[in-house]
Amino acid sequence: MSDNTVTAGTATGVGPVEGSSVYSVDNPAPLIEPPRKRTKKSPKSTRGNFEMYGWLFMRLSGVVLVVLVLGHLLIQLVLDGGVSKIGFAFVAGRWASPFWQVWDLLMLWLAMLHGANGLRTVINDYAERPNTRLWLKGLLYTATVFTILLGTLVIFTFDPNIR
């Protein structure tokens, strides 16, 4: 076998990959540049790690939401007669406590952001025309901001003596 030729196999059936290297200290292998290596020519700014943080947020908020939402369902739909007990007086009783205010506030923010990011993914997957994507996401972000702000305002400005 000559120094620079890689033959397809030898008599023993051992190819150049499995067998001893055709390269040595005196005959080093050529350096192959990694295909996506950042060089001086590649753009300075990248898109950052937004999608990775979005992925992580879905998992972290998901774990917290399992506790918050299942607890919420247990209280609202299962205990003390289920949905039949719910009314203004019941809401007033619960929001008298800062604990439940914080619970509901956290649930509102996490659930809305978790859901909005989920729907963003769905839009990205199925809406193909750039205009459709733009409008659907515009609608999604508007509804999300509106709902989060409205819910937050209601929790903080709730007045049990409104009448």
Binding site: G87, F88, A89, V91, A92, L108, A111, M112, G115, A116, G118, L119, V122, A143, T147, L150, G151, L153, V154, T157, F158, D159, I162, R163
Partner: peptide, 25 residues
């Protein structure tokens, strides 16, 4: 996930009625 998100939107709107009046809620 999509169904829950749409429900959540409606659910925040109905709860917001506590700021309108006890009767509306």
């Amino acid at each position: 996930g999509v169904l829950i998100f749409f429900f959540l939107f409606v659910h925040v709107l109905d709860t917001a009625l506590v700021r309108v009046s006890p009767e509306a809620y």
